[in-house]
């Protein structure tokens, strides 16, 4: 295939590809935002002394981490409507599955972050009259979150790559749009090559940004210390 024909192919389908990229980015961002909140709740639940909170939280975390994303996606999309009696759009199913997976991993990272907080911090808070809830909210979780920033960003990269799987339930992400173009043009080689290149560039840019941000972090307030976030 000549460069001219390749250029025409891409230019003619630029809007289809562009829409796919937009859906992919949206999926990654929305899923991650939900996953951070869910992960934090699940983490606090699994650290709780109350068994009624701890057990379901741990189950949630382990399920999210120990089942393949494809299985979660298919399960949510085809089984949940029957279990819950509500019909989801493919986009909603995709967000739920991606959040489920990411929140499992994030919960583990949060837990490690919370457990890394010096015990002296907790004792100082208690000595100042803070209740467990207050010292978690005001002292422990904010410090853990700051330590978790690199972990959250890395999980975002993983989540971004995982979004390509949602094409199997016809969410019009970049991968799905590429399939559409192939079925219209019968040109899998140039289309999929270009899509691979696009994913590579996008993920590379995000990963570089993450690395840059992580390296810059130690220069800000709280991180500006001898043994701050790595």
């Amino acid at each position: 295939m000549s460069f001219g024909r390749f250029y025409r192919l891409i230019a003619d389908n630029a809007d289809v590809i562009g829409f796919g990229i937009w859906v992919t980015i949206q999926l990654a961002i929305v899923s991650m935002m939900i996953a951070v909140i869910l992960g934090l709740i699940a983490c606090l639940g699994s650290l709780s002394r109350a068994r009624i909170l701890r057990f379901p939280s741990m189950l949630f975390v382990e399920f999210g981490r120990n089942t393949p994303i494809l299985v979660q996606l298919i399960w949510v999309h085809f089984a949940w409507p029957e279990i819950l009696g509500i019909k989801f759009s493919a986009w909603t199913s995709a967000v739920i599955a991606l959040s489920l997976q990411s929140s499992g991993y994030l919960a583990e990272e949060f837990r490690a972050g919370i457990e890394s907080i010096d015990k002296g911090q907790i004792e100082a808070s208690q000595a100042l009259g803070m209740t467990y809830q207050r010292l978690m909210r005001r002292i422990v979780v904010p410090q853990a979150l700051m330590r978790m920033i690199p972990g959250i960003l890395n999980q975002f990269v993983t989540c971004f790559k995982s979004t390509s799987i949602v094409s199997v339930i016809a969410v019009p992400d970049l991968m799905y749009q590429a399939g559409l173009i192939v079925s219209m043009t019968f040109l899998p080689m140039p289309v999929y090559s270009f899509v691979a290149f696009l994913y590579f560039v996008m993920v590379m840019v995000i990963a570089l940004g993450v690395r840059f941000a992580t390296r810059r972090l130690p220069q800000f307030g709280y991180f500006n210390q001898r043994h701050g976030g790595e």
Binding site: D118, G120, A127, G221
Partner: peptide, 26 residues
């Protein structure tokens, strides 16, 4: 209870060997 014990602790101030300032606050 937990809440009242926390309140009781405000009766006593405590200074630690390792200072234990909160690093995320000024």
């Amino acid at each position: 209870g937990q809440r009242e014990v926390a309140k009781f602790r405000t009766l006593l101030g405590m200074v630690f060997q390792q200072f234990n300032l909160f690093p995320h606050l000024t």
